[in-house]
Amino acid sequence: MTSPAFTPAFTLAHADALVRFPEQRVDTARRTIGYRRAGDRHLLTMPIVMLHGIGSGAASWVRQLETLGENHPVLAWDAPGYGQSTHVEPVSPVASDYADALSDWLDALEIERCVLVGHSLGSLIAGSFAIRQAARVAGLLLLSPAGGYGAAPAHVREEKRDARLAMLAELGPQGLADKRSANMLSAGAGEDAREWVRSIMARIDPAGYSQATHLLANADLASDLTHFKGRVAVAVGAEDTITPPAACELIAKAANVNLQVIPGAGHAGYIEAPVRYSALIEAFAAQCKQSKGAMQ
C-alpha cells in the first residue's frame, strides 16, 4: 500500500511546480554542473541523488523533488551536455567519463555518500560510478535501466548509434520530442505528463545528446553490476516499451536481485505515476539508512 506521505494532490502543473526548485550550478575543477535540489533543511539525512535519461533533464524529477524533499535532501543533476552543464571531453565518451563528472559534482557539494537513483541512461552512469566509488553509494536504485550496447558486436553498436544520430540530425530537438516523447509513457498517462515529457525533450542540446548516444553504444551496465556488491534494486513500468520488463530482468539478474514491475507505468514512470515511484524511492532510501545504522 502507498504510504500516506505519498498521496499529494499535485494541484500545480509540472512547469508551475518547478518554480519552487530553480536551477543552480556549481563549478568543479573540470566543468560546470547544473542541478536542482530540495530538502536543504534536512542536512543530517542521507541525500538522494537522481540521474536522468538521454532525452530528459533535472526538471523531469520535479514531483520527486516535491515529495521526497519533505524527508531528505534531494538533488537532480543535468548530466554533462544537458541544461547548464558543460560537456565531457571525448567525442565518443564511455560511462566512466560521466562517472568522473558525477564524482566532481558530489565533491563540490561536499556529499560523501548518497542513495543513487538512475533512470534509463542515468543507470549507466550510476552503475559506472558505483563500481569505482562503492563506498560513496549507500544504495543503487535503477529505474527502467538502459543496458547499453557495449557487449554487442561492433556492427550492432554502430548501427544503433548511427540510427539515433541520424534521427537527431533529421528532426532536431523539437522534432525528436514530437516523434519520440509519446513512447516514454503508457497509454493511460495524463496530458500534463505528456506535455512535460515533450517540453523537456525539446530542450536537449544536440551536442550533449550526441555524446550520450555514444555513451549508450559504449556502455555495458550488466557487466558493471556484477562488480558492485552493495545494495541494488531494479524497477520497470509494466508498459515500458523502450526498456521493457524482459530487458530489465537481465539487468536485475546481473545484480542478483528480483525485478520490481510497476503496473500501468511506461518508461518515464516517475513522471506519469509520481506517487508510486516516490514511494518506491522513499522505501529504498529507508532500507539504505537502516543498513547504514546496522553497520555503525
Rank of each mutant, 00 (worst) to 15 (best):
M1W: 03
M1F: 06
S3F: 00
P4I: 05
A9M: 07
P22M: 03
R31T: 08
Y35P: 05
R37W: 04
D40I: 04
D40Y: 01
D40G: 15
L44H: 14
L44R: 13
T45V: 15
T45S: 13
I48L: 14
G53A: 11
W61S: 03
E70S: 08
H72G: 02
V74N: 04
L75Y: 15
A79Q: 14
P80R: 04
G83W: 02
G83Q: 02
V88H: 07
E89P: 00
P93N: 05
P93G: 03
V94F: 12
A95D: 11
D104G: 03
E112A: 15
V115L: 11
L116W: 01
V117A: 04
S123C: 15
G127C: 09
F129G: 01
A130M: 08
A130R: 04
Q133W: 13
A135P: 00
V137M: 03
L141R: 00
G150V: 11
R161D: 02
A163G: 04
R164G: 06
A166R: 12
G172L: 03
G175H: 09
D178F: 10
S186D: 06
G188H: 09
A189E: 10
E191V: 12
A193Q: 11
W196R: 06
I200W: 02
R203F: 02
P206H: 07
Y209L: 07
A212P: 00
N218R: 13
L221D: 06
D224P: 02
H227I: 01
V236K: 00
N256V: 10
L259I: 08
L259Y: 11
P263S: 03
G266N: 03
Y270K: 07
S278N: 13
A283V: 03
Q287C: 02
S291A: 15
G293R: 12
